[in-house]
């Protein structure tokens, strides 16, 4: 335990913790996205899936707690690392054009908190079903909850924008974590960018397909 605490004290340790929690959150996103795609099967399918996830409260809450813990630690470390770098250059440059800096890398500290705000909104909207956010919410009626939710165009657009930001975050994160974990080698180094682009595109496309399908009328409310 002593060693682990000492490890976390350094920025290198914090980055490893961010990478590990980032990987766990990423794997969860893959599962979540695949779960969501069931909405394109029979409408009853995703409701069945929702019931299955809720079958065991112990299971549901263990997963939720693990995710919440990972997210909390990830954000805490991100904030500490960001704070340290903020103080590392007290006098700024008048002109600063560091080469090779991509947009995603530059916006990690902004895409992160916006994603956090989105996650909060998303949980209140489609998990809790807060009346003011989603008046037609029915507990475990996943299919209609999603379709009715996204039939509000501003809501669908907010989801799409947030998911695009998440894609930027993941793109840099998925590339970056190999570096952080020490998994860099000339043999596969050149593949890391394309791999990050591919995984990010698949995730983003999977998630975004749902609001788009509702907006274009491919998915309609079902009676009952």
């Amino acid at each position: 335990m002593d060693k682990a605490v000492g490890f976390y004290e350094s920025t290198l340790g914090k980055k490893v913790v961010m990478a590990v929690t980032g990987i766990i959150l990423f794997l969860y996103l893959v599962g979540h996205m695949l779960g969501n795609l069931q909405i394109f099967l029979d409408p009853a399918q995703i409701d069945k899936y929702a019931h299955m996830l809720h079958a065991s409260a112990a299971f549901l809450w263990s997963v939720r707690l693990v995710l919440l813990f990972c997210l909390g630690v990830h954000i805490l470390a991100a904030f500490q690392v960001w704070w340290r770098s903020r103080t590392a250059r007290p006098v700024k440059y008048k002109v600063f054009n560091p080469p090779d800096v991509d947009y995603a890398a530059k916006t990690m500290v902004w895409s992160g908190p916006i994603i956090a705000a989105f996650i909060t909104y998303h949980l209140l909207h489609l998990t809790v079903g807060m009346d003011s956010l989603h008046p037609d919410y029915v507990h475990l009626g996943a299919y209609n909850n999603v379709v009715a939710g996204f039939q509000q165009t501003p809501v669908a657009i907010a989801y799409i924008v947030a998911l695009l930001l998440l894609a930027f975050h993941l793109y840099h994160g998925l590339w970056s974590l190999f570096q952080t974990m020490g998994w860099d080698h000339p043999k596969f180094g050149p593949w890391r960018r394309p791999l990050a682009v591919l995984l990010t595109a698949v995730i983003a496309a999977g998630f975004i397909s749902v609001p788009v399908a509702v907006m274009t009328g491919v998915l309609q409310l079902v009676g009952g």
Binding site: K15, S85, A88, D100, S176
Partner: peptide, 18 residues
């Protein structure tokens, strides 16, 4: 390195480029 007050890497890669 950390004691000297340098910042923390977020893999921008502008170091390698310059």
């Amino acid at each position: 390195m950390e004691q000297e007050g340098f910042g923390a890497c977020t893999n921008y890669t502008s170091c390698e480029a310059t």
